[in-house]
Design a binder for these strands. Structure first.
Lengths: 336, 336
DNA sequence: GGCAAAAGTTTGAACGATCAAATCGTGCTA
DNA sequence: TAGCACGATTTGATCGTTCAAACTTTTGCC
């Protein structure tokens, strides 16, 4: 295989200088039409492609975004993150950006890795996932002035009025509101909520949506608690449903719990009890259980908009303190 | 934020030359102990990290592996690929390698993308997924002498004796053999196989395992065909089970079909009919359906071994024609 | 036609690392 | 003690691109 051509080779072939070739690539509008065509022909003929490393070295930009991939823990909900990464890869590609993955098992290790990647010039920006209220990572990123957006709100006091940093998230409350309304319309007035134990921001948000919609309808229903597990959900929902047979439907904080509730209802001879899950995982789809779809596609678009501006092709370095923004994606109820 | 230190800064601080610092990083054994310690101290104090782009430019190596992420199509089986990417990211990280994702919708577009990434020096090697018998990508990669390994065998005439290129795959036949044996031991002698229509290499491989184990046991069972869909599997399995109630268990080519079969059996009043799926997806786990686990972790290890040698830290450029190798991972039956 | 301003193009330097070759020491042998 | 070999370290060149500034050509206007 012959050595790859450089700008110099292209320049010689087109009878122009290095810089003009570079301009054709990076600022076509400042090159005269005739010249540009000549250069473009030479590029095509030689099959020239710019060498990314040289460009990065000079411009100090990598056009690459880092994303941490959590260790796979099994279970149902990892799917949303995977779909998000898929979507992000596609959307980033359309904007001339690349996605680099990294792995870490602890926040400290993640900070170490981010440091390597950022200082090494491998990535321009980071997409954080799984943010929590006290997140050492966000502080570190802000201190270092590294552009980043999180999938998941900061969970501080006023995330929408004065966000601690740019974020994108799915409006969990809106999702459960829609789910609750659907059940109120089609199933009956006594709708239960099967949620996680207190303490999770996401879980609280989703519970709130159910509560709001129930109050608005002037009715009420029981709220049950269980940790994220199909088996445990089946036990708890089974016991509660047996004790409270008047329940007309169940809104669940996740598909795993929804599956547990569905199995419990089936075992109690009520296979048609309406149950709505959250995340629209393949498992819920397979069982024909309705679910709230997170629309990871739109989350990905939101992330890139915040990082690069609505149309931009490069990562913007903005002052976080000054103007942090957010995108709240409205989820969609998938009825089955 | 102060400018990042370079080798020059470290050299000055340690009272040595650029190259010595470089040697401490890349060939510590040729530097005298005392010198090395002095340099290491300076590196730590300054918080120096090598600039990847400069290194890449000079060494023409990126220590990065490209992986295509298929557009997310929903359904159940995409999970295996995601788990593989997770595992690959972690294992690669341990060997000082990074993973870069790219997106493409057609083979032609994928070749275009691979060209960009390889010629641009972004990646040293590629991991292909979803190989087929006539794969334009593998030919292109071999012509260009780009190191690559596929997850999925080449499906040529003699994949194990004379592989067309390095590959890693899961031994589907071994998986269904184990599943079949398990059902023969615990359920009865009439075990059905619910598989895809003819034509798929993977599907054929898995069907073979069932067939072999049935012959070995001197028994036989019906083979049913249906495309990859929970709903369709439910219909087909339901009809067949009703027509042939003597069936003692069903081995399925995928979890989606297994779920369909399980639902059909339940609807026929036989919820305990043993069914085994393939891929061990969260959906099967949630329903308590046994499944053959692909062990994507081991596939990832196999891929890296083939690319870099069992312990190596850099991608090996070998002659494919001369010595192509393969790794066949033995899957594991997860009983539930 | 002349001249200033604007547009287009070229040249030298720099990004930060490693390679290749030269240099410097040190210990050993004759 | 001169000579030599070998290990440790330094020096100069280079990877391919873009930036900044200098230079050349075209345009616009009187």
């Amino acid at each position: 295989m012959a050595k790859a051509p450089t700008v110099e080779d292209v320049a010689r072939a087109a009878g122009v200088s290095r810089q003009t070739v570079s301009n054709v690539l990076n600022a076509p509008d400042i090159v005269r039409g005739a010249t540009r065509e000549r250069v473009e022909r030479a590029i095509a003929e030689l099959g020239y492609r710019p060498h990314a490393a040289a460009r990065r070295l000079r411009t100090r930009r990598s056009s690459t975004i880092g994303v941490r991939l959590d260790p796979y823990l099994g279970g149902i909900s990892g799917v949303v993150l995977d779909r998000f990464v898929h979507a992000l890869t596609e959307r980033a590609s359309e904007r001339g950006m690349r996605i680099m993955l990294y792995a870490a098992h602890t926040p400290a290790e993640e900070i170490e890795r981010m440091g390597d990647l950022v200082d090494g010039g491998e990535i321009d920006a980071i997409v954080l996932t799984g943010t929590s209220r006290e997140d050492t990572r966000t502080n570190w990123l802000q201190e270092r002035d590294v552009p980043f957006v999180s999938f998941g709100r900061p969970w501080r006091d006023d995330d929408t009025g004065a966000p601690a940093h740019p974020w994108v998230d799915v409006d969990g409350a809106a999702g459960t509101r829609a789910a609750t309304r659907h059940l109120l319309d089609h199933a009956g007035s006594r709708i239960a909520f099967l949620g996680w134990p207190e303490g999770s921001g996401t879980g609280g948000d989703r519970a709130r949506g159910w509560g709001e919609e129930m109050s608005r309808a002037g009715t009420s229903g029981p709220r049950w608690y269980v940790e994220e597990s199909v088996g445990r959900a089946r036990e708890v929902a089974g016991a509660e449903l047996a004790a409270d047979p008047a329940v007309d439907g169940v809104v669940c904080v996740s598909d795993a719990l929804a599956i547990g509730a569905h199995l419990a209802a089936t075992a109690l001879g009520r296979p048609e009890l309406p149950v709505v899950g959250f995340d629209n995982t393949p498992a819920a789809e397979a069982l024909g259980i309705a679910s709230v779809e997170q629309l990871p596609e739109q989350v990905a678009v939101g992330v890139l908009d915040l990082l690069m501006g609505p149309t931009g092709g490069i990562v913007l370095r903005r002052s976080y303190a000054a103007e942090a923004a957010y995108v709240l994606v409205e989820p969609r109820l998938v009825v089955r």
